[in-house]
């Protein structure tokens, strides 16, 4: 019996970082779209869409992982 601690550790690390990063990005996007009144509107919007684009890329990567 040998437990692959390295694999378990990397699952732990990757899951933690990826989840927090994704949720953080998405929240930034959602919040950016929600408050348009503060700051330059176009910039905030662009930033928000950039966040969503990154999240969409992550989802696409996820689908690719499932299919491959």
């Amino acid at each position: 019996m040998n437990i692959d601690w390295a694999a378990l550790g990397s699952v732990f690390g990757v899951s933690l970082v990826a989840t927090v990063a994704l949720v953080g990005l998405f929240t930034l996007g959602v919040v950016g779209l929600a408050k348009r009144e503060s700051g330059p509107a176009a910039l905030t919007r662009a930033g928000a869409y950039a966040c969503f684009a990154l999240c969409a890329a992550a989802v696409a990567y996820g689908i690719w992982l499932i299919v491959a």
């Binding site: 933690l16 927090v20 953080g24």
Partner: peptide
């Protein structure tokens, strides 16, 4: 992961 993500999303928002 969900705990930290929830903290973060509440903090940002």
């Amino acid at each position: 992961a969900a705990l930290l993500a929830t903290r973060l999303t509440y903090r940002i928002g």
